[in-house]
């Protein structure tokens, strides 16, 4: 697959604060990439720069081989609705649905109408009075109906009820199959979204900590839980990503793949061993553990 988004040594500073710290990332065309991490990790900033709404302090970003900032032809291929999106005063849903097709060459009225109905988005209420979930619904309509070759979803689930979330997944997968595109999706509802991703990027403190095919994320780390002394023994000389202790019991997330010897030893010591789930991996890389090292694309730790 050829890459659609190429980020090279990109840094973004806001005054003295470094939001993005020298990251490089490529996103292949026709893929759904999960951009995961804690609040303030830098996910929205990355998306904002890809969408030409911001510029890197240093480094470069290219979408379809061109820099997106002030590039009309590239921007017409990108859809990005931020989680705190502002709309013009007194805008209602019909204002959004009427103007969006002028900017999105691939816009689908059918998808927009279907989603607006399914999400039960109010038609007469000004958007500024919408609930958090209703605002997310409008953002999803804009993102999916645009059929933009590069579609960026920034926390699309905020405030959405479970029915709407399922509907979003179904419509995304159905429309994606007919009209393949590159999707970058940031979310904290990792378990619900995990099945969508064919690529996972975990960001923390402005740096990319994990960049992996989704099928390999289970090999990036494993968890051990059980009596503290057994866990300490099993985790000695290993890179601990995350650790929790409760009255003589301990649970750790360890970077790397558990080998057969470790598994056998864990069973012998009465400890439970399992591959780290994606939420555990994200939580672990977001934990304040200084010894973690980054896992780059395709790598198996």
């Amino acid at each position: 697959m050829t890459s659609t988004v190429d980020i090279h040594s990109m840094t973004r500073r806001f005054g003295r604060s470094t939001a993005i710290d020298d990251i490089s990332l490529t996103v292949a065309g026709g893929s759904i990439c999960g951009l995961l991490g804690r609040n303030g990790a830098g996910k929205t900033t990355i998306m904002s720069i890809i969408a030409g709404q911001d510029r890197p302090t240093s480094g470069s970003v290219e979408v379809f081989g061109e820099r997106p900032f002030e590039n009309e032809s590239i921007l017409s291929k990108i859809s990005f609705v931020r989680d705190n999106q502002r709309y013009p005063d007194n805008y209602r849903l019909h204002h959004v649905l009427r103007i969006a097709p002028d900017f999105a060459p691939e816009w689908s009225d059918d998808v927009a109408g279907e989603l607006a109905d399914e999400f039960r988005i109010p038609t007469q209420t000004p958007i500024k009075k919408f609930s958090r979930g209703q605002l997310s619904s409008v953002a999803i309509v804009l993102g999916l109906a645009s059929r933009a070759p590069v579609t960026l979803f920034d926390e699309p689930y905020l405030g959405l009820d479970v029915t709407a979330r399922v509907r979003f997944h179904d419509t995304l997968l159905r429309d994606y199959a007919i009209h393949p595109r590159t999707v970058l999706l940031s979310t904290h509802l990792i378990e619900e979204s995990e099945a969508l991703f064919d690529r996972v990027v975990i960001v923390d403190r402005g740096r990319i900590r994990v960049d992996s095919d989704s099928e390999h994320t289970g090999q990036l780390a494993f968890t051990l839980s059980g009596p503290s002394d057994a866990i300490d023994r099993l985790s000695a000389k290993r890179t601990i990503l995350h650790s929790r202790s409760v009255s003589g019991l301990k649970s750790v997330t360890i970077q790397g793949l558990a080998d057969a010897d470790t598994s056998a030893e864990a069973v012998r010591l009465g400890a439970r061993i399992a591959p780290a789930t994606l939420p555990e991996l994200v939580a672990a890389f977001g934990a304040d553990t200084p010894e973690t090292r980054d896992i780059k694309k395709g790598a198996v730790a």
Binding site: A51, G52, Q53, E70, N71, E72, L75, S76, I78, S79, F80, V81, R82, Q85, R86, Y87, P88, D89, Y91, I99, A100, D102, F103, A104, L142
Partner: peptide, 16 residues
């Protein structure tokens, strides 16, 4: 003030 952020979201350049 309120139209500029939405225009960028839709894909307008600042120039346009």
């Amino acid at each position: 003030a309120t139209t500029f952020p939405f225009a960028l979201t839709l894909g307008a350049t600042r120039r346009a």
